[in-house]
């Protein structure tokens, strides 16, 4: 039936992908990670056959390094200011174990939950999860009630308090709406990595791994299969797309 056809198609795709990966390794090792995110035709929408996710290795994350934050601000046109009313899509959090005093540093952003509380509570449906698992705010429907900010367990969302100008063409942002990390959806749809991941790799830390959680050939799938990883606030059973190892 169609199932078997799908699986054949997927097999073929996986084969091509694996081939491409090998080619990527041999031809352009420095740019390999571009290939991990899979591009698609523009007229083709996001598909539920994919689920974008991220694995963050906190042991590799540099203490005091905030290149991911800077890259995010540059890519998405954020000011980089850190006042109480300024937007921060990604932030470095220092986590200290109260009993042992052990300190770790890790990036924290929208965890792109499979059961996102922000989507549940949004009265107009502006807060939404795309078919491929990316959680977004549809600013055309956001009325600025900020209930999603109340509901988010990760404090991932920011409210735009001031009128905006000189936005990035790919990243519309405006006063009165709520916003958060989009996994750099404008890049992912082109087959690129989120800006933070790229910056982390460029720095040589390679603490962030981005990819398709449903693709058995993807690096993130394999990494998750071979290492122990946790969700932040796993007790809430939100099935986050961002997972951490080393904490």
């Amino acid at each position: 039936m169609s199932d078997s056809m799908n699986s054949k198609l997927e097999d073929r795709r996986d084969f091509l992908k694996a081939g491409g990966l090998v080619a990527g390794v041999t031809l352009a090792p420095g740019l390999l990670f571009y290939g991990v995110a899979q591009s698609r035709a523009p007229e083709e929408g996001a598909s539920s056959r994919q689920r974008w996710g991220m694995l963050i290795d906190t042991t590799k994350c540099g203490d005091g390094c905030s290149d991911c934050v800077t890259a995010c601000n540059t890519e998405n046109g954020l000011s980089g200011k850190t006042g109480p009313q300024d937007s921060q899509w990604i932030r470095k959090v220092d986590v200290k174990d109260l009993r042992t005093g052990y300190v770790q540093s890790l990036p924290m952003m929208c965890q792109h939950c499979d059961n996102p509380p922000c989507v549940d509570v949004c009265p107009t449906g502006a807060s939404m999860k795309r078919a491929d698992g990316i959680v977004l705010v549809d600013r055309h429907a956001c009325i600025g009630c900020r209930y999603c900010m109340m509901a988010c367990p990760y404090k991932a969302r920011s409210f735009v308090h001031e009128p905006m100008h000189d936005q990035k063409p790919d990243v519309p942002r405006g006063k009165g709406c709520v916003e958060s990390c989009t996994f750099c959806v404008q890049r992912v749809d082109k087959g690129e990595q989120p800006a933070c991941v790229e910056a982390c790799d460029a720095k040589g830390h390679k603490a962030m791994l981005f990819g398709d959680l449903k693709d058995p050939q993807s690096a993130i799938f394999k990494a998750l299969k071979s290492t122990d990883s946790v969700e932040v606030r796993a007790d809430l059973a939100l099935d986050t797309g961002v997972r951490y190892q080393g904490i």
Binding site: P123, C142, I143, G144, G176
Partner: peptide, 25 residues
């Protein structure tokens, strides 16, 4: 107090029935 009070009509025409806030409306 809404961030986008001009979009009140959106709130009155688009309901997300998972949201207790929409039920409140």
């Amino acid at each position: 107090d809404l961030g986008r009070p001009d979009r009140l009509i959106v709130a009155m025409t688009h309901y997300n029935f998972h949201s207790i806030f929409a039920w409140n409306m």
